[in-house]
């Protein structure tokens, strides 16, 4: 049985993901197309919200991935700190812009949904505010990666920032809840409570979530490959200078 850590070798990682990438891409496209078409065209309009409810098929998955991308970065950062596998640090770097885009999608779809529902594009509601703060954390993380020339130094510093940022993001979440009780509806999905989305809406939503997860994985694979190759190029250039 081969160790999981073998995939921390950049070469092995690129070989494996090269084989997996087409599968993930096709699967992501399929589930997204099925989920979105099903959700947009084959579900009834909500009795209160009308057809606007259908933006849920973009809003909820992107919001989920906005948080999950950060969690993935946190795990990857911890792996870098503990085991110092370069692929791990580069995967965290690769995931950050994807997470940031997911956050923007969640905020934008939320605004588009909020306008007809609450009569406003933006409100300082705790959930909205938390996502805006999360976006700021993404920006800081990406900016720190971009600002530092030495790759290992950047990996170390951003890992610690990701760790500290996670704690403060969680703190901000509670602080924001305390600060304003808000008008956002409860969570659409939760494990411990009865789900508060009816089955007709729920099944296509599951497809869309699966589609976003697959899309995220495919994008992280692709972007990590790019980061590895870019890093490899810098290493080769540096070696040329060594003579």
């Amino acid at each position: 049985m081969a160790s999981l850590w073998e995939y921390a070798n950049p070469k092995k990682f690129i070989q494996t993901t090269d084989r997996l990438l087409p599968w993930f891409s096709v699967l992501a496209a399929l589930t997204l197309v099925i989920g979105l078409i099903w959700g947009f065209f084959f579900t009834p309009d909500d009795f209160r919200q009308g057809s606007t409810v259908k933006i849920i098929y973009l809003h909820v998955p992107s919001a989920l991935m906005a948080i999950n991308a950060w969690l993935m970065m946190l795990v990857a950062s911890l792996i870098w700190i503990v085991r110092r596998h370069h692929v791990s640090a580069l995967a965290a770097r690769a995931a950050a812009p994807i997470g940031a885009v997911m956050t923007v999608i969640a905020l934008a779809t939320g605004a588009i949904w909020g306008e007809p529902m609450w009569g406003t594009w933006w409100a300082w509601d705790p959930r909205l505010t938390s996502f805006l703060i999360l976006f700021l954390f993404y920006l800081g993380y990406i900016a720190l990666w971009a600002a530092i020339e030495n790759d290992d130094t950047a990996a170390d510093l951003t890992s610690v920032l990701c760790l500290v940022g996670s704690v403060f993001a969680l703190l901000s979440r509670y602080a924001v809840n305390f600060w304003n009780q808000g008008l956002h509806q409860g969570a659409s999905l939760s494990l411990d409570k009865e789900k508060n989305v009816a089955d007709v809406f729920y099944h296509p939503l599951l497809f869309c979530i699966a589609g976003f997860v697959l899309l995220f994985i495919a994008l992280v694979f692709l972007r990590t490959q790019t980061e590895i190759r870019a890093r490899r190029m810098r290493a080769l250039l540096a070696r040329e200078r060594l003579g």
């Binding site: 950049p10 290493a235 540096a238 060594l242």
Partner: peptide, 15 residues
């Protein structure tokens, strides 16, 4: 002075 490592040595350290 450090010598450049062998060319196909593409492992975890990138160099």
């Amino acid at each position: 002075r450090a010598k450049a490592p062998a060319h196909d040595d593409f492992d975890g350290s990138f160099l």
